[in-house]
């Protein structure tokens, strides 16, 4: 069975109806366990004190901020190459979630940075590329809102998404490209291994990361379904107007 069958809005709606509650409950469970465990049942770090508890929000949200853009990139490429409307609508649906994740990452980073670095903000490569990614998210949403013809909006926002991907990559790898700035490299390198976080912090962190990932999937599915319905609503209203 081909994955392209989900490009059919009817098939997508049928297939995802049961997935939304499933992912929602799973996300709520994982986030609750991860955050409660991290906040109440982990010790202070010997150097960072209780601010280490911010990691359970900062790392998962930053991860999802970047991954949301990559999901939008894949969906945009599918739209540009294969012209499947569901993929364009899925990319549109993901953008506000990405904004929220980026905002959480920026805010928690600032309140964590102030006591640790002595400043809320620095024009550090990773912080700056993250801020630009946030602005790209806002621009992406604004472009969808500004253009009435949906296919044209999908084309232009897809191009914007391709350009913004540079900053999504920079957000993740900036500390490797430029060996300067305040922000440290990743403490949980998935590909290379050799993490620097102790198990006592790592386990609730992973649970929280899984929770944020599940939340993202649940919200993207819910919002994509809404966009599909919205599109059908517009089509029906236009047909009604034409018939009068």
């Amino acid at each position: 069975m081909s994955i392209w069958k989900y490009a059919n809005p009817k098939q997508f709606m049928h297939s995802t109806a049961w997935l939304v509650p499933l992912f929602s409950y799973a996300a709520a469970g994982f986030i609750a366990v991860g955050l409660i465990w991290g906040f109440f049942f982990t010790p202070d770090d010997f150097r960072q004190g209780s601010t280490v508890k911010i990691i359970y929000l900062h790392v998962p949200s930053a991860l999802m901020a970047i991954n949301a853009w990559f999901m939008m990139l894949v969906a945009s490429l599918i739209w540009l190459i294969r012209r499947h409307h569901v993929s364009a609508l899925a990319a549109r649906a993901a953008a506000p979630i990405g904004v929220v994740m980026t905002l959480i990452a920026l805010f928690t980073g600032a309140v964590w940075g102030e006591p640790m670095w002595g400043t809320w903000w620095a024009w550090d490569p990773r912080l700056t590329s993250f801020l630009i990614l946030f602005l790209f998210y806002l621009g992406y949403i604004a472009l969808w809102q500004a253009i009435e013809t949906q296919d044209v909006a999908a084309d232009l926002t897809s191009i914007l998404c391709l350009v913004g991907s540079v900053f999504a990559v920079l957000s993740r790898y900036a500390v490797n490209f430029w060996n300067q700035g305040l922000h440290q490299g990743t403490s949980v390198p998935v590909a290379t291994g050799g993490r620097t976080v102790d198990d006592v912090f790592f386990v609730p962190l992973v649970i929280s990361m899984i929770g944020f990932g599940l939340l993202f999937v649940a919200l993207v599915l819910l919002r994509t379904r809404t966009e599909i319905r919205h599109r059908r609503l517009h089509a029906l209203l236009a047909r009604e107007r034409a018939a009068q």
């Binding site: 955050l35 202070d44 508890k53 911010i54 949200s61 959480i104 805010f107 309140v111």
Partner: peptide, 17 residues
């Protein structure tokens, strides 16, 4: 938990998020 002198930073991070 006793958040010590960083209580404001930690609690505001959780509240806003």
């Amino acid at each position: 938990p006793d958040l010590g002198k960083y209580a404001e930073a930690v609690l505001s991070a959780y509240a806003v998020s």
